[in-house]
Amino acid sequence: MQRDRKPKFAIISILLTFGAFILFVLATIVDPLSTYSNILMVAGLALLAASWGVYFIGGRSLQRAEVATENVITVIGCKGCDIREERPFSEGDYVFKEVGPCKKCAGTSYIRAIYAIPIKKD
């Protein structure tokens, strides 16, 4: 399931952890000035908390139920001519259903095809 996480959150989490580690190491190096050491320590802890926050909260978007979004098209044709019309699918449509007289000739219109075109998500 962890493989579902967005890569950018993994990178941010790791970078924040690495930053925290550097700050902690710096805190140990500058010990003669304990004030700076403590500030660095607090900053490091904040980065660490942010790293965990990004890891646990930021990557959750892919865990939510994804609702399929698609645009379903009904293609109308005629038995007597080569007219072709497209309209959105409406309930009750099915392929080869007769849908009344043709607009162009005296033939009978029917549904030639029904298909889905996926809508791209951002």
């Binding site: 962890q2 493989r3 579902d4 996480r5 993994a10 989490s13 790791i14 952890t17 965990w52 890891y55």
Partner: peptide
């Protein structure tokens, strides 16, 4: 995400 299985352990 290949790192995913190890991320928590790393943390």
């Amino acid at each position: 995400p290949w790192l995913g299985d190890f991320k928590l352990e790393i943390n």
